[in-house]
Each structure stands twice: as structure tokens, then as C-alpha cells.
Design a protein around this nucleic acid. Structure first.
Length: 527
RNA sequence: CGGGGUGUAGCGUAGCCCGGUUAGCGCGCCUGCUUUGGGAGCAGGAGGUCGCAAGUUCGAAUCUUGCCACCCCGACCA
């Protein structure tokens, strides 16, 4: 499963910009290895979907499992998720949130309480109906014990609003109990028809924040605040520029009054929603009867938000930065930031070089850099180079007998594939600086790409031409109706990704209907 | 759930039409020697109920039927 093959080849715009020479006083050997086309993984241009899949599998991020639509996240992929979790969790705590955990199972009846919400999720819920197995009478294995039918069936959470709001009713009596600023790290299940590793799986990992507030204003502020946290994370950790905006009615979260999102652009010109923050109004408070006594002594329904990002971000990370040599990771999210590969011809050299390598490792680690020394004798240096390149390790340090003699190492950066010889003296500082450069360069490169793939369309013909050509974000006028949006989707598969939060008002005519419009919105084909 | 396709070693595959020695090859794996600054070479070796079940036949990876799994396209979606 999950191995998608594109029906047509997508041209990947060449966006790699030449990187400025390092501002370090060192010789640049700069031999960029050619990609060996005989190797058995795809390029972006050949087959983008396959390229994506090959990276996930070959970089050891995840693999398909025995359960259809579910993946096994392997240690290296999980390590990336853990780094994302660590950064986000800190940001949540820094903005006053605390973690908690709510059950995986939700009583079926909870879903009937909020009409839009059930409408949105009913079609993709896994349901637990029994609680016991027994041996089959004919000895063919185990079967469900029909006598163990649950009185009330349990839904495996597709999201936790219902169980959380049922709980919040118990927690809230007075304005003094507010706000509640809770986040949970959890798995959820949405029974998807078609799945792709990380981008859409039946079960996925995420965090969901659920907050309760006394006033509409405060809840709205929370919604915006968390959107900003996500945008900050995307740009500063993932090195992916994102558009902040509000969703159209069609794309809004089931049960929300307003859904805000960050939208990122992938290298194949498709958009990917990288995070959402919902203003839920009083919908859930009313559905679950969560009221509080205000200072004035009146009984009010509380105001709510929810917000989340998922393991889908790992997919975004892959598609935003990686190249035909494999994964490219931004240093801030790389489980291994620098790998050291020793070169040697015999045992004496091995001992000499590895001893120096260990010293270097320690020196760099003192700066808080995650370093791995690969001193395995079971693989050759060339093999290791390719291995770590494919795994997206930002920096590689190579040290051999000649280096030990001269007090140098070779250092290669993954983003530009450039190599240079640098002195061991101050190496830790060099590494630190290069990691910072790489982080910045990736963001700059992705921003450049987005800029080059964001176009305006004023006519319907233009609109369709852009989609047929290279895709990307299309800024176009829209008459604000769901009907027009639906028609555009049916004809082109492009949807409104968001209505940007910026202030760029501009009178115009809807690209489809010709009706008046006050601003451009962002269209794209999306994941 | 509709339409199409594919199941042969850990992975990728040849053989299938037109049934007939011991099912072949590449990668990977194991052993030994030589190697090690961009995926090492040579020699030897291990590994297969040919998706499952039934049928046709002297004989089935190959033909027939049924089932299962997976993949692709559509509807749905973070």
C-alpha cells in the first residue's frame, strides 16, 4: 500500500540556488558527487510520488505494516518526530499550556451531540463493538465472542473534542476555573480510503490542544496565538515558510466557527496544510453543557479553541527540502546533526584516526551538537557517505591519516553537497556556524521556491494554465461563495488553501464567476 | 465501494502465451583473502511450501475456478 505512482510526470522546477562561499578562512575542495543514476531510487522529476516513498523507506523513516493504512514509524523517523515534539512541547509550555491525557475510546453517543462534528467524522470512524475473544468451536483460531457485545459501542477517537468537553463540564463551574489550557499528545484514527506514509495514514500521532475561555475575545486570541506558534515552529525549526490564513467554509473543521491554518508549498507545486487552529465558539460548550458563573453572577457558556499538528509534518519536511540524493533535514530537527567518518588502511591507522575522531566528537558535543562517530569496520567510507547523505544528516566530517597529520578534517554539508578542508582547531565553532548556515539556507531556498511558485491569475484561462504548468500557489479573486469554490474544485482539483491573514485588500473580479471580490485568496492543488 | 493491474528468496525481478531436468538473475546476507579519501574486488556458500485452496493432467510457477493480499485510478480526507 501507499506506493503511489504519478500518472503523469511532474516537472520539478530547478530551484537550487548557488550558495555563497563560506565566510570561513579555509580551502574549498568543492567536489560535488554526481548522483549515480543507476541506483534504484527515483528522482523528483521521474516520479515525485515514488521519490517520496523511496525516501521514506530507504532513509529508514517508516515502513508499511501488516495493517492496511497503518505504518510502522522506525527509530530514525520517530527520532525526527521526537525532536518536533520536544520543540513544540516547549513552545506550548512557554505559552502557559499543560499536558494531560484523555481516553482513546469515546462513547458513541458523544458524537451525536454536535451536529456538524458528527457529520464531519462519522464516515471515517473505527468502532469497538465487543470486548472479548474466544476460541473458535471448530478450532480454527479465535473469534469474537458474540456474548461480549458492548452495551454502548466505543468510537476510537478521530479527534478528542467530545470526550474532552464532556470532561470539561466537570471541571468548570466558575470564571475562576478558566481558562483551561490543556494539550495532549496522542494517536488518533481516521479510517482513510487511500493512505500515504506520514501524509495520510489511518492511525497517526499528533498533539491536540483544547482550551476553554471565559470570553470570545480570549478564545480568539488563543486561536491566533497558537497559529503563530505553529508558524514560528514551521519557519524556525522546519525551515519551511508558511502562509497563515483562514479556511473557507468548505475547508473548515467540523464543528468550528473559524479554522485558521498554516499552508506550506511542496516541491511538486502542491500545497500542504501543516497545522490548524480552530475557534470553536460555544458550539461544544453548548453541546456538552459547559457553563460557568461569571463575575457578574450570570451563567455563561465557555468559549473554546482546539489546535493540532501531526506526524504529517514529517511528510512536509521530506517534501520541502529533500533532493535526488535523498533526505535533507534542517539541523534543528536532525536526530544526527553531524556524522564523523574515519578513513584508514590498517589497524594502526584505525586506532590513530578513531582516537582523533573521538576527541573531535567530544569537542563538538560540548557545544550541544548531536554527533555520531561511525567507526564501524563493516562498511566502507564510500558506503557511509551515501548512507548519511541519504538520511539527510546535515554535516559530515571525514578524517583520515593525512588529516591527523595536518590537523585538518574534510567537512561536507548536505544542503549544498559542498566539501571543504578545515582545521581541527576551532572545529566545534565551525560546525556550529555551518549548522546555523544550513538551517538558514534551507529556509531561504524554500522561501525562494515559494516565491517563484506563487503566481497571480486574473482570468480563468490563466488560472488553469498555471495549474497545468507548474502548479504552486495561485493568488486569485474569489466571489466568496461555496458554490464557486466547489465548481473550481470540480474543474481543476484546486481548492482554496486559505484566505491570508495579511491586510492586502484589493478590489477585483472573481476568477471564475466574474463577481466582485475584495481580496485575493490562495488556491492550489493540495495534499 | 466501483474500474484496472500485480502476487516467484529479505528486496527487485526472469520464466507463464506455447505445461516437461535441479525455477534463473541482480542487490542484500554468510565465510575467507585482498581492500578502505564517494555505494570495493575475487573465490566459495546459505536462502524458495512460485499468494492460498480446489480442479484439469502421467506431469502445474505455467492451464481453469474460487478466495486472499497488495498496488494504481475514482468518491473521501490532516
Amino acid at each position: 500500500m501507499c506506493i503511489l505512482v504519478c500518472t503523469k510526470l511532474i516537472t520539478i522546477p530547478e530551484f537550487f540556488v548557488k550558495f555563497a562561499p563560506f565566510n570561513l578562512p579555509i580551502k574549498n575542495t568543492n567536489t560535488i558527487p554526481k548522483r549515480d543514476m543507476a541506483k534504484d531510487f527515483s528522482t523528483r522529476e521521474e516520479n515525485y510520488s515514488k521519490w517520496y516513498n523511496d525516501i521514506v523507506l530507504r532513509a529508514g523513516l517508516a515502513e508499511n505494516s501488516a495493517v492496511r493504512g497503518c505504518m510502522v514509524i522506525k527509530p530514525y523517523g520517530y527520532a525526527i518526530w521526537e525532536k518536533m515534539q520536544a520543540a513544540l512541547d516547549k513552545m506550548f509550555k512557554d505559552t502557559g499550556h499543560v499536558n494531560a491525557y484523555f481516553p482513546l475510546f469515546i462513547p458513541k453517543s458523544f458524537f451525536s451531540k454536535e451536529a456538524d462534528h458528527v457529520e464531519g467524522f462519522a464516515k471515517e470512524c473505527a468502532v469497538v463493538t465487543h470486548y472479548r475473544l474466544k476460541n473458535a468451536p471448530d478450532g480454527s483460531g479465535v473469534v469474537v465472542d458474540e456474548d461480549a457485545k458492548l452495551e454502548e459501542e466505543l468510537v476510537i477517537r478521530p479527534t478528542s473534542e467530545t470526550i474532552i468537553w464532556d470532561t470539561y463540564r466537570q471541571w468548570v463551574q466558575s470564571y475562576r476555573d478558566l481558562p483551561i489550557l490543556v494539550n495532549q499528545w496522542a494517536n488518533v484514527v481516521r479510517w482513510e480510503m487511500r493512505t500515504r506514509m506520514f501524509l495520510r495514514t489511518a492511525e497517526f500521532l499528533w498533539q491536540e490542544g483544547h482550551t476553554a475561555h471565559a470570553t470570545e475575545q480570549e478564545a480568539l486570541e488563543e486561536t491566533y496565538k497558537m497559529l503563530d506558534v505553529y508558524a514560528d515552529f514551521a519557519e524556525n525549526f522546519m525551515a519551511i515558510p508558511v502562509l497563515k490564513g483562514v479556511k473557507s467554509e468548505n475547508e473548515r473543521f467540523a464543528g468550528a466557527l473559524e479554522t485558521f491554518c498554516i499552508e506550506a508549498l511542496m516541491q511538486d507545486g502542491k500545497a500542504l496544510q501543516a497545522g490548524t487552529s480552530h475557534f470553536l465558539g460555544q458550539n461544544f460548550a453548548k453541546a456538552f453543557d459547559v457553563k460557568f458563573a461569571s463575575k457578574e453572577g450570570t451563567l455563561e457558556y465557555v468559549w473554546a479553541t482546539s489546535w493540532g499538528v501531526s506526524t504529517r509534518l514529517v511528510g512536509a519536511l521530506i517534501m520541502a527540502h529533500s533532493d535526488d540524493h535523498g533526505l535533507v533535514l534542517p539541523p534543528k530537527l536532525a536526530p544526527i546533526q553531524t556524522v564523523i567518518v574515519p578513513i584508514y588502511k590498517n589497524n594502526d591507522q584505525y586506532d590513530l584516526v578513531c582516537q582523533k575522531a573521538r576527541e573531535i566528537k567530544e569537542m563538538i558535543e560540548k557545544r550541544g551538537v548531536l554527533v555520531k562517530l561511525d567507526d564501524r569496520d563493516t562498511h566502507k567510507p564510500g558506503w557511509k557517505f551515501n548512507e548519511y547523505e541519504f538520511k539527510g544528516v546535515p554535516l559530515r566530517i571525514v578524517i583520515g591519516p593525512r588529516d591527523v597529520e595536518k590537523g585538518t578534517v574534510e567537512i561536507a554539508r548536505r544542503d549544498t553537497l559542498e566539501k571543504q578542508i578545515v582545521p581541527i582547531e576551532n572545529l566545534a565553532q565551525t560546525v556550529e556556524q555551518l549548522l546555523g548556515d544550513i538551517q538558514q539556507n534551507l529556509f531561504r531556498r524554500a522561501s525562494e521556491f515559494r516565491k517563484n511558485n506563487t503566481q497571480t491569475a486574473d482570468t480563468w484561462a490563466e488560472f488553469k494554465d498555471i495549474l497545468d504548468d507548474k502548479g504552486g500557489f495561485i493568488m486569485a479573486h474569489w466571489d466568496g461563495t461555496a458554490e464557486t469554490e466547489q465548481k473550481i474544485k470540480e474543474e481543476t482539483k484546486a481548492t482554496i488553501r486559505c484566505i491570508p491573514l495579511d491586510d492586502n485588500k484589493e478590489e477585483g473580479r472573481c476568477v471564475y464567476s466574474g463577481n466582485p471580490s475584495v481580496r485575493r485568496v490562495v488556491f492550489a492543488r493540495a495534499y
